[in-house]
Every structure is written in structure tokens, then in C-alpha cells.
Design a protein around this nucleic acid. Sequence first.
DNA 1: AACAATATTGCAAGCGCTTGCAAAATGGGA
DNA 2: TCCCATTTTGCAAGCGCTTGCAATATTGTT
Lengths: 336, 336
Amino acid sequence: MPPKDFVSALEVAQRAGVSRSAVSRTFTPGASVSAETRKKVTDAAEALGYHVNELARGLMRNESGIVCLVVSDVATPYRSALLRELTSKLQNVGKVAMLINTDRSDGSVDRALSQAIRYRADASIILSGLPDASIVRLCLKNGQRLVLINRDDEEPGPLKINLDDFEAGERIVTAFARAGCRSLAFANSEAGTPSLMGREHGFVAAARKLGLEVSVERYGWTGYEAGRVLAQRLLTRTQRPDAVFCATDLLACGFMDTARHQFGIGVPQQLCLAGFDDIEQASWSSYGLTTFAQPVAEIASKAVEWLSTSEAADNILQHSVRLTAELIWRTSIRAG
Amino acid sequence: MPPKDFVSALEVAQRAGVSRSAVSRTFTPGASVSAETRKKVTDAAEALGYHVNELARGLMRNESGIVCLVVSDVATPYRSALLRELTSKLQNVGKVAMLINTDRSDGSVDRALSQAIRYRADASIILSGLPDASIVRLCLKNGQRLVLINRDDEEPGPLKINLDDFEAGERIVTAFARAGCRSLAFANSEAGTPSLMGREHGFVAAARKLGLEVSVERYGWTGYEAGRVLAQRLLTRTQRPDAVFCATDLLACGFMDTARHQFGIGVPQQLCLAGFDDIEQASWSSYGLTTFAQPVAEIASKAVEWLSTSEAADNILQHSVRLTAELIWRTSIRAG
DNA sequence: AACAATATTGCAAGCGCTTGCAAAATGGGA
DNA sequence: TCCCATTTTGCAAGCGCTTGCAATATTGTT
């Protein structure tokens, strides 16, 4: 491999005519160094092109500054938006993000976490999948913080950030009912994650309570293509629904496109549609999708805030936060 | 901070009744250890929950296994797709991605690279922005590989991966001409990056050569909103273009939506449109955008391939690769 | 059975850094 | 001017790992 030859603190010390400790202290916020020494050191460092070796520092301090982001489907609008917020906020508090892609086979979340341990990450944030309980314990035992976003695990220890999925499902039923819809459907993927199922359950429960007809259709992965297939299935039924709630915006886009372009169904005139996530495309004028906004910025804030809180305050802090998804009105549901 | 207490190789060694070196070698591929010792070690490691400390290993080996990805606008479809490919391919060769978000102020690319140096990254891949020449030299001097994607820098040393932007601009003119378009326009952002400008120049040059009318309009950042504004400007001209090439797909989507929904212009009947990137949305049936596909998978392959090649072969290898963007025909250009 | 060739092992040094401790320098009263 | 309280400084130990070297164990050959 490359012939790395980085300049070390020793070399800086020699050039500056001070001890290596002085160099170290100069680059340690809050350490005691006279202005004069500091100047000598920074000058020498500048001249030599010195950069603290965070590997060595992490080794000593037992704190690498690394936070692992465990994620699949990175290229998806919602995921990448969350990623943007997280990386940016992490950088603001002086941490750096290590991105682990779990698109591949099963058990990849566990592999990711073991990677996090090997790099002595200060924390891991899990956006996709669910780690095995044993590895969670291992992380926690090693003092590694864990946050689960929309994961809904029961294991105590990690910070769990969730949305009010069930309530969102309920709320949208009200909106559909107000628009005069009588026959509802929920278009879901087969992923079966708690957040998806929460939306479904809330939706179905509320519809039943109002005495509206309601059915559920599930297919594939949570993307545009699945939305097309689901539309295919739901819109060819003898009794076609007049309102469908799609588990995600991506699904909703596929659904809407198929309804309009393939079946010639007017949205929202003949069919009301709603989604979840509020991805950028939902606001594009081809869609104007009424949807629930995931508060990505707030999610990210909560996560990094928790990571940077001291161990002492840890017990006081609640380990579970529930945020509410705001309903964004656009034009895919008729006015009441 | 957390009371980390990871188990060390020493503890494993003691439990296994071998030397610490044996433990180290067990976890070093290709090292000499008998099957018997290896078993004792792995058992002990398993029982204790031992994980190699990559920080310490990186310190010794002078090779951290970290590759920095320097990127802005992570949440954009094209960028996140590239990210997906890169992270996944890096993991395949045993590297791990450190993601640095440069959305913020100026000079952030330089800050990112200095971060990369501090973590002794084996390499950095730059997807956005352009680093200062001095810091590039610093990276190279320290044996850190550098790859620039669509950056077009002149500095020797880094691997430069580029597309045939100019030729793409030319090719699309031919397509427009064949569709009977006579008055062309290029819708660009004000970013002015070489790849964007390449497309523009190729387009303008080819149009002139064919004696077609051609104009250029530039506005804002390379996103959906800019596309709307550009449409606003171009479509209210007294002599409205009948074909426009948008610098990116995101722009094109905004442009198309505005043309259709706000101006009631038929695409492709009254207006032919093309984009660049082939983001997922381009294939959605609301758009059916004819566009040039960035070979993201191939770009990622070339990048990580180069990173894992030996220093010796380095000189032989070319430091610049040019890939071609494939024209994907959909329905936003009339049939010839 | 004896020996050379090969494989495995442990020792110890060292990667670049931080930090407790004690010595040296500095400053402020009296 | 001298003494004590306060910074500032350097020393040296140690973080968890790898690896060259020499010693020991294993194997194959005749």
C-alpha cells in the first residue's frame, strides 16, 4: 500500500523547540498552554503540514468521534434526506459519520454493528433493519450508544425515535371521510416493519369505527414499482376503492401514475390518495400529494442531541421519543 | 463520556492460554497460526466478545481501511444513487466509508479533506466541489489516494472520472433536429461546474453547426425549482423554443411540470425535452424523460478498483477515465 | 533414527498520541 | 525584595495492536 509518511507530533515539537506534550496540548481544547508556546506550535504544525492522528487519539481517549449510520436503500428520497440531516448535525457537534450500507444479505445489520465496534464508534444510529438483541447488548456493554429510528424495538438501552404512525392512519381516515369517500383501501408493502404496520392498523381501525368499507393490499418492497402493482390490483377490483392511503410516498407516486395514466382515473375527482414521508416529489406539480411529513430535521436533532449528552444525565433522559407526523395538505384529496 | 471497556487481545490471549501475538495473527489474514491455536483463540474471543480494535490496527499498519466520501446535496437522487454504489462496492473490498457532508459554507471541501487526513483515510472520493491544490498535494504526499468524480481538475495525481459531456450535448442536438425542432435552448444552473458547462458547450456548438437557433438560460441551483423558473423564462419568450435540453433531470422535471401544468404546453407534441443523469423519476410515467444515464455503477467500480490497486501499478495506470453517458430513449422527444 | 527444512510461537519494540505528576516558570502581594 | 499561589512545562507510562527476529515444535527424507 501507499508509503504513508505523515508528520508526527514529535517532529512538530522538535521544530517548535518544545516538548511533544506541548504539541498535544495545543491541539486539545481546554488544555493548559501559554499563548507563546501555542504560537510556536501552530506555526511549526502549519509549516510541516501536521494533522492530529485521530486514530491514535481515539486509542488513548477511548473515544473515536465516529458515529455509525446503518442504513439500507440509501438512494431513496426519504432515507437520503435523513442522511443529509444526520451527517450535517453530527458534523456540527464534532462527530464524523461512518456510513454502513446494509442493502445486502440478511444479518447485515449485525455485521454493520460489529464493524462499528471494531472502529470503536461512539455510537450507532440504525435507520433500517433491526439488530439482534445479543449484539445490541454487546454495543451497550461497550459503552456504545445506540439509536433506533422508526424501529420500535423492545430492548431497553437504545434511544428509540418513533412517529405516531397509528394516529396518522386514523387521521387520514377522517380526511377521506370528510371528502365523501366510502370505500377505503390501504396500499402497503410486504416489508411489515412496525411503522408501516402501525399506519395500516390505525387506518383500518378508524375506518371500521366509522363503518366504512376498508381493505388492505400488500405487495413487494416500498417503492414506486410496488405502487404500480398495487394500483393494478386495487383498481381492477369489481368494487373499486375511492380512497387509498399508501404506506409511503414512493408507493403513492406509482399508484397515482398508474391510476391516471393507465386507468384514466381522475385524482382527486374519482379517487383520493394520500402518502407518507413527504418526499420532495410529493410536492412536484405532477403529484401534489397530500401526505404526512416525517420531521427528518427533528429526528436528526433528537438523535445527535442524545448522543452528545453525558453519561450522568443518561438515566434521567427518556429513552423513547415519539414525534408527530404533520399532515401536509395538497391536492390529492378533494376538499371537504 | 461512556465508560467503554472493550475486551483486548491480551485478555483473549490469557483465556486461550496463548501469547497476544497468537491472537493478533489469528485475526490477520495470511498470518501463520496452527489450526489448534486458531481454534483456542476464536473460542476465547467469541466467549469474551472480542473485536479487533481497528484504530490500533490502523495505527500500526498505517492503513485505516477508511475511505472518505466528500459530497454535497446528499439527498439528491443522482448523488444518493452514486453513494449507494460507492458504499456497497467499498464494503465489498473490505473498506468502510466515512461520509463528509459539504453542504455548508465555502472551503468545506478543504475541511473535509483535512478531516480525511486526521483519520488517516486510505483514500478520498470527491463527488462535489473542488479542493484547493495545496490540500490535494498534501493528501498525495501523505500517500492518500484521491479520486475526483465529474470534477475535471488539472492537478496531476488524483484519478479523474469524467463523462463525455460535450459529446452528449452534441448528440442530443441531433435527436432534436431529427424530431423536427428548429429553435433550441439549454437550461442550465448557475453552478458552472465543468460537467454542466461541457454539456452546454457541446449543445450550443452542435446547434450552431447545424444552423439551428440556440440560446442558453441559467438560473440558481441544479434542482426542480430552478427548472420551474427556467421554464418560466424560456416559455414566455416571444420566440419560444421547441426543444430544450436541461442540464440535469431534476431541472428537466421542474421544466416539464411547468410547461405542461402552467403553460398547457404538450410534451413532446409542442416541446421536446431531454435531461441528464437518468434519475429514477425520469422513468416515472408522469415524465418519461429522455435522458442520458450516468453510469453510476461503472463510476463506482472504476473508483474502488483504482483504490485497491497496488502502488507499484500506480504509474502504469491511467489517471483519467472517460465514460460515456448512454442516451435513454423515452417519450419526451417526438419520434423522428 | 538422525537431520534438515519448514511451520509455529513468544518476545519485545514501537505506531502516535494523551495525561497524571512533579518540576520549573510566572505573577502578585506584603 | 521575598514568598506563596498559580500556570505552564516536560517526563514517562501506557492505549491495543502488529511484526521482525530468534527460539521452539513439527514434519518429511534418507
